[in-house]
Amino acid sequence: MNIVVAMKQIPDLQQIRIRQRQPVLDGVPAALGMIDKNALEAAVLLKEKEGGQVIVLSAGNEEVEETVKEALAAGADQAFLVIDDSIENADGSVKAPILAEAVKRIEDVGLLLFGEGSGDNYSGQLGSRVAELLGWPQVGFASKIEIQGSQAIITRSLEDGDEILEVNLPAVVTVLGDINEPRIPSVTQILKAGRKPKEVLELEELELDLPALPQIKTLSNLAPETNRKQIKVGSVEELIQALKSEGVI
């Protein structure tokens, strides 16, 4: 059984600067989403126990061929990429059929993992949309995944408790950011990442009838305003009182 991990190419969040509340993206290198890396680590841990291959699936502009090396260094065995400039800013309604069609072209997929939401837009729709298109069951908010024969036992961490589910494979699972801590890759894992097998398709090769772009238009994207209150206190008691009145404690 193979495990596919869908990973999104996004701007490296650590290198984005905010100027006049707008993100400055010029010169910011591409990276893979943080929670996507948790999904990959979950897949690699399962592979180490159960065998099979971990295949990273990503759709984006041609830069994704370089960006995906990060996933190949972190334990993915091969990559399946769909390349088109138009994908970069596409929303879930466009990306879902692309990813679903790509998954159909990968052999023996038992599990398709996503991060709970992407590192940039965090719409959290793709897992559900792709599951619907594939006709597979989907489980969200996973904090633990175990494989038992033709089923997976999945713990969902919810606000008021944990829920344990049994799901038939193949299935789509979206994982939480705290499911694990991604390992640090070794030097040779990094240096050999580019030599791992990669299947690269142009978007038109999937022969999809995609909705017209864009379905959703971003009107504004502003960083939250943070203003310091600059409350001055003269004693510990006043500090405690101020923290209480501000609802901090």
């Binding site: 370089e66 090396k69 260094a73 640090i184 890759p185 990094i190 240096l191 990442a193």
Partner: peptide, 18 residues
Amino acid sequence: SKEQSLLQAMARDFAEKR
């Protein structure tokens, strides 16, 4: 190169975390 950037990021990650 991408590999060199990843190597640098790996070392930075290790140094900061461990």
